[in-house]
Design a protein around this nucleic acid. Sequence first.
DNA 1: CTCGCCATGTAAAGGGTTACATGATTCT
DNA 2: AGAATCATGTAACCCTTTACATGGCGAG
Lengths: 188, 188
Amino acid sequence: MAVLGALSIAPMTGYAVREQIRETLGHFWSESFGQIYPALAEFERLAMIERLDTGDSRSSPFAITDQGTARLRELLAGEPQQPKPRNGLMLRLFFGRQLGPEACRELVLSARAQAESQLAHMQDARNDLAKDTDLDDDAPYILLTISAGEHGATASIAWADEALRAIESLAAQKAQPRPHATFTEERP
Amino acid sequence: MAVLGALSIAPMTGYAVREQIRETLGHFWSESFGQIYPALAEFERLAMIERLDTGDSRSSPFAITDQGTARLRELLAGEPQQPKPRNGLMLRLFFGRQLGPEACRELVLSARAQAESQLAHMQDARNDLAKDTDLDDDAPYILLTISAGEHGATASIAWADEALRAIESLAAQKAQPRPHATFTEERP
DNA sequence: CTCGCCATGTAAAGGGTTACATGATTCT
DNA sequence: AGAATCATGTAACCCTTTACATGGCGAG
């Protein structure tokens, strides 16, 4: 789906397909050469894509055919099955007691930094999209995904800040565990 | 890591490990029997866990040993590598032009419903956690993950609402495409 | 008694990444 | 000339899920 989709935006080589997916879909999707080249071969066999004959010797990009577009629409129309979640950060925090507050703090800080960088990347993408007039037709849809990235990153940052406060109060509590609270309470 | 972590909270059978992971970590992690039982066998071989001898014939839960706890800490301390993202919803929206506004609207609506249900689930988890006094030590850390789930779900809902407005204006624009704009402009 | 759940496993198949091999072209 | 990048592939390996096989036990 990703490969056909990439070719539906512009003809390109397999190498370029991967670059495009990395650059524009990097936060939502990824494909490796081991997937892309066999897929291209299969699609060509099924006449869903065809090699363009440019005068250029070194590059012969693929273009999507009508059959390919039809197949892409079919695939897009299928139910999106979300893969089993595997969030290493959350797994570690869940068992954070074994790790201790300091290590957890590091984890959250690093997650915050990542979210911050994702946010910046999304804003770059927004600017690039505005400039690229070739993408006018796709732009409204691509904007939806950029907006999702922004919302997600912003939420991560807000969560991280909240979590950092919680962890600090946790560490403080541990270092100085309610000095004689029960005793003072018992004093009349 | 997930299996040792589960056993670090309480001794339980392999079956129960899976139930626990599904119920409490479901939004962040998942394991199948095909992973859990071989892992348990290996851990037992390495003396990281041991079978408890309850009088009960049908259930002999595993308990984590000191070596197991040490290994768990080692694993938790490792860098969390986030897996390659695979977000079917975003992939579809990115190529949404091929799908059309209506289908995209359905996708976003369904995502919104999912986020709504996740939010409810997180609030349940919060309540359950407050009740369960066995988890007092782990609770502060578990709360971090619950909070992350809430932030994420809330962000998804906000994004979905924004996206729905964008899609509607897109559909309206398509249905009624600027009637004769260029002609009227050219008239003196 | 039978159905469904608890419980334990295993083998096959699928999906995917990594690493390697190869060569042309372009840049320095 | 040498390094980096573009470009295409492939094979091994790894992780994981799925499906099946098996059996004890409790409830209706």
